[in-house]
């Protein structure tokens, strides 16, 4: 059972002054599953992600990856363990082209980062990987566009492409569809599902769109005010009265 768990938070706490944004959260993400984290605004979902991806250090608690304690590892190690992380607010290299944004992601895990006497174009394997990913996220026609001039929806695709490039085992997606035009959402979700199924990936997903969450998740963790309110399969979560209350009290309503 325990080798089934790939990524784990043990009693994580993060204190911002008086506010415990994450307040004793433990979750176990099973290998190969799509594990959604939901909860009203300010529930602590992004903070939990930040703690698990190494962007923030917890006040207390531990983060385990494949059983190894990675709590105190510097943030640039995260992807080397096999954990890719995308952001709720698009976090890319604005003046660089789509191609270069992804190429940099592809180059990072190789052993060529300090070959400063060679042109980057010499390392064709990273470029090949880049074209693969660009095609996968559907940005081929935009490859040479500066990231900052992309429409928002395409920036979200780029954000996804950037974490696909190094081919991590676990993908942490923080509201990948945030701000996307609603007709673009199904396409992106289909892509995420396809990545999970065909690539045998584990995905952690924060998402506000309940339709999406209920359809794609294997497990759902509901957070509320920094704590885990409920956890289970989609059907169980939908039927959970405490979850209904949390949402009715907040901005979102559960509707399927």
């Amino acid at each position: 059972m325990s080798s089934d768990v790939i990524f784990e938070a043990v009693n994580l706490r993060k204190q911002f002054g008086a506010l415990a944004a994450v307040d004793g959260v433990s979750i176990q993400v099973r290998r190969g599953s799509l594990h959604a984290i939901i909860g009203p605004n300010g529930a602590g979902k992004t903070t939990l992600f930040n703690l698990m991806s190494g962007n923030l250090k917890p006040t207390s608690g531990r983060v385990l990856f494949n059983g190894r304690d990675i709590t105190r590892e510097p943030v640039h190690r995260t992807i080397h363990f096999g954990i890719g992380r995308s952001f709720q607010i698009t976090n890319i290299f604005p003046s660089l082209t789509v191609f270069e944004n992804i190429r940099l992601a592809a180059q990072a895990l190789g052993r060529d980062n300090f070959k400063f006497w060679r042109s980057a174009t010499h390392f064709t394997r990273y470029e090949a990987r880049t074209w693969e990913v660009i095609e996968q996220v559907g940005l081929t026609a935009r490859a040479h566009t500066a990231a900052r001039t992309l429409p928002h929806g395409d920036q979200r695709k780029l954000e996804l492409g950037v974490i696909l490039a190094p081919d991590p085992e676990v993908l942490m997606l923080d509201e990948p569809t945030a701000g996307m035009a609603s007709e673009q959402v199904p396409e992106l979700i289909a892509l995420i599902q396809q990545i999970q199924k065909t690539g045998d990936k584990t995905i952690m997903l924060v998402e506000h769109n309940m339709n999406v969450v209920m359809n794609v998740s294997d497990t759902i963790t509901v957070m509320h005010m920094g704590k885990v309110l409920a956890e289970g399969a989609p059907a169980a979560i939908a039927a959970n009265p405490a979850v209904q209350t949390a949402y009715l009290g907040g901005l979102y309503t559960l509707s399927f």
Binding site: E100, N113, K115, F116, R118, T121
Partner: peptide, 9 residues
């Protein structure tokens, strides 16, 4: 050369 290299990028 440096700026064009993987390091410079």
């Amino acid at each position: 050369r440096f700026v064009d290299s993987p390091t410079g990028r």
